[in-house]
Amino acid sequence: MFNLRCIVLLLLMLQLNTMTSQDFREFKWKKRILLLIDTKNDLNTRNLQLSKFNARYNEMKERDLVLFVYNGKEVLDRDGMLTNINPDNLTYGEFQGIILIGKDGGVKFRKKYLVEANEVFDLIDQMPMRRAEMKNR
């Protein structure tokens, strides 16, 4: 009887964990993701890069663009708060820079720090899906 309780409890815990953690696939077809990779914990560069995009928040919102930071262990939101996004599938080695993930889930852009916001916005604005969005708005 004890073993059955342990198994049931373990299964409930696993189910709860999968219900509370999310991954980037949940954004597919809804949002574009700008992922800042900072596995070396270079706060000066990270903060400078963040400021380039945070200063243009309305333009990011208009493009359905959400920003996250991956510090090698956890995924943080644009304000530095811990998210419930599971980082287990994020493996970028020594890369320090940004990655743009399109609404289709594909990597559209990858570049080392520092990147100007206009470079990303111009790229997004040339995408067929974005052109359709602009036409329909």
Results as ranks from 00 to 15, higher is better:
14 L>K: 09
7 I>S: 08
61 K>C: 03
8 V>Q: 13
61 K>N: 13
28 K>F: 05
42 D>Y: 01
87 P>I: 10
15 Q>C: 14
1 M>F: 10
82 L>W: 07
39 T>K: 09
53 F>A: 02
70 Y>I: 09
119 E>R: 04
63 R>K: 06
111 K>I: 02
32 R>F: 09
12 L>S: 10
45 T>S: 03
39 T>C: 07
94 E>H: 12
98 I>S: 04
75 V>S: 00
88 D>W: 12
98 I>P: 01
69 V>E: 01
59 E>T: 03
86 N>A: 07
36 L>M: 11
52 K>Y: 13
20 T>Y: 15
25 R>N: 11
55 A>K: 15
124 I>G: 01
90 L>V: 13
10 L>N: 09
92 Y>L: 07
41 N>R: 06
54 N>I: 13
119 E>F: 06
33 I>Q: 05
47 N>R: 02
40 K>A: 09
50 L>S: 04
12 L>A: 14
44 N>A: 09
87 P>Y: 08
120 V>I: 15
115 V>H: 01
43 L>G: 00
136 N>R: 09
99 I>H: 06
73 K>Q: 10
71 N>E: 07
44 N>L: 11
44 N>Q: 12
1 M>R: 10
36 L>G: 00
6 C>G: 05
66 V>M: 08
50 L>R: 03
100 L>Y: 05
108 K>R: 14
101 I>C: 03
16 L>S: 14
79 D>G: 08
80 G>N: 05
108 K>F: 09
97 G>P: 11
35 L>W: 07
42 D>C: 00
129 M>T: 09
128 P>T: 02
38 D>L: 10
108 K>W: 08
8 V>T: 10
78 R>I: 09
7 I>R: 14
90 L>G: 08
85 I>N: 10
50 L>N: 05
80 G>S: 06
104 D>H: 08
51 S>A: 15
61 K>M: 10
54 N>S: 14
56 R>S: 09
74 E>Y: 07
132 A>E: 15
133 E>H: 04
85 I>E: 06
96 Q>P: 04
12 L>Y: 07
16 L>Q: 13
128 P>S: 00
111 K>W: 08
84 N>C: 06
122 D>M: 08
70 Y>N: 05
67 L>K: 02
121 F>V: 00
136 N>A: 08
137 R>Q: 09
127 M>Q: 08
35 L>R: 05
55 A>E: 15
107 V>Q: 12
19 M>C: 14
37 I>N: 03
65 L>T: 03
51 S>R: 14
95 F>M: 10
5 R>T: 04
124 I>P: 05
78 R>N: 05
71 N>R: 08
111 K>A: 02
23 D>H: 08
120 V>W: 10
123 L>R: 07
82 L>H: 12
131 R>V: 13
137 R>G: 11
121 F>L: 03
117 A>S: 14
60 M>N: 07
36 L>H: 00
13 M>G: 04
56 R>E: 14
95 F>S: 07
52 K>T: 12
115 V>F: 01
117 A>K: 03
73 K>R: 05
72 G>V: 05
125 D>I: 04
123 L>P: 09
98 I>W: 06
19 M>E: 13
34 L>I: 05
17 N>M: 11
6 C>S: 12
63 R>E: 03
98 I>N: 02
93 G>D: 12
24 F>G: 05
130 R>V: 06
96 Q>Y: 03
107 V>I: 14
57 Y>C: 07
58 N>P: 02
125 D>T: 04
105 G>Y: 02
107 V>Y: 09
13 M>I: 14
129 M>R: 02
13 M>E: 03
29 W>Q: 02
